[in-house]
Amino acid sequence: MDRFLTLIVVGVFLLGGGVIFVTSSFGEDSVNVGIKATVPESLELSYWIRWSTGGQDPYEFGFSGDATSIDFGELEWNENLGIWLPAKYYTVFLIARTSGRPYQIKQTSTGLVSGDNNLNNSFIMDPDYEADDKYSNGVAQGDMPAGDSLGEAGLAAEGERIIYDSNSGKSRIVRVYYGISTGEPGTPGEPITGDQPAGNYSGTVAFTLTLK
């Protein structure tokens, strides 16, 4: 280095791309340049909803679609089972963004209510994690991070329920299936029988993201 001399600006060089090079450091043979970026701190829960017919994947072509609410529509009487059933079930996809901080996604629900009656013992939720779920860039999210876990299936309107518990703090796509109980052994809830009063039942489901 000491054989190099620092010279005064001696010229302006016009190179391609409209770049003007002003020589300010003749004689230097090394240049340091900083590289910078800011990743903002965030705490956000995103979601989208898909409907699908019973037994079909939420993205099964011809048997599923986007939805803006969980609307089971008019239930149909199943002669064989002797219960009321909807034609659809719903999947709510949730993504938490916490800047790497451990978190929980929870849900509460007012239940499905019509006056003094409700379907709360039949309105069920079931959290799920699929390694193949992808962002729109087509990259699968992979296995659930170590230390993370899913909440248990149960009645949606039964207090505050944990959907996903993340110790890793990593952002992942989590599914929650919402449906009406079929009474299948080993599954939560009770089916809607012929004793259920007719009516329009409605309510809300609230999702909450909290840091641990």
Partner: peptide
């Protein structure tokens, strides 16, 4: 790979050195 939410927030800084060697 892209920057996902797995990365902690904050100001990231590094340094690049360009050296001419005769």
């Amino acid at each position: 790979s892209p920057v996902t939410t797995d990365k902690s927030s904050g100001d990231y800084i590094g340094k690049i050195t360009i050296t001419l060697t005769p």
